[in-house]
Amino acid sequence: MRRLKYWQAISEATVQCMEGDPNILIAGIGVDDHKGMFGTTRGAFQRFGRSRVFDIPNCENAMAGIAIGAAAVGKRPLVVHPRNDFMFLAMDQIFNLAAKWKYMYGTQAGVPVVFRGIVGRGWGQGATHSQSLQATFAHFPGLHVAAPASPADAKGLLVSALQGSTPVVLLENRALYELEGDVAEAPTPIPFGQGRIIREGNDITIVGASLMAYEADRAADILGEKGIRAEVIDPRSMRPLDERIILDSLRKTGHLVVADTSWAAYGFAAEVAAVAAEKGFAFLKAPVRRITLPDCPAPVSEPLEKAFHPSPMTIVQACLEVLQSEVSSVRGLRDVQERFTGPY
């Protein structure tokens, strides 16, 4: 096993899948430039060049349709969006067509299009460049939606996406790109709908995906110092959602905190809470707690932005409250974003 950064794992998965399947194409704004989408498309461009890696005009809506059309006749387009927020322009094609294709046309074959969208955050990315659209995408049957938290998962889920027959949306939080972890050399798929226990514990379950899985794990460190053993669950995909892994944990701990990078209303945290209420009610010893964004668009001004995004300390605090713990003063933890400096 080697250690790779999150972006390197994505790059490696892409190159390996493209080597294995000549039908895979990459399309996206700037996928071939010097930044190579945080390095994730750099390797593929160096290896395969312009015949398979396409810089595109600014045409999110049409590009989604173009990808669907190419997929309908045998290609496997991987469309990359520098911000998932730009995918709002592509939603008609994704929801009204790709997601429905197989069912609506009564066909055996779906359209295997894969969309990667990057979630920005921090440095005043602001209202339209730092949203996390997992709940939006996961609302619609017919899509697979995942948001990997670790380099290994980023690789495995992308491999799964590029080998499957279902349209997939993968969301990657920008704050994770430099994170390092063990990654297997072989391109082994991780199936959608299979969560991962990041750490075991008996006292409380914290569910979080993507950046929040990482933050939940850091929160669990702090709780551990106070003798509270949190179990951290990363569902990895939002659709399908691994309900079993959440319920099994809940059976053990009886307490649930769900952390998400988006808003509470109708969101991912709401979905997990609903699973707990519907199917794990008997296990619950306390009300479920959701940690989500305040109900306003993302502000730019630094103090507002800081207050806007949940931190690991928000998770710690929520766990203590759910457990009605007497412990209150815990050491602080730096926000993941504090490592990030400008210029952007």
Binding site: L89, G126, T128, P297, V300, S301
Partner: peptide
Amino acid sequence: GRGGSVHLTDAGSGVIASSAILG
């Protein structure tokens, strides 16, 4: 301070809105 560099506005002088979403 809510919008940042890409959301400049000034109703008084007729700058209604700017936006970071292309087009």
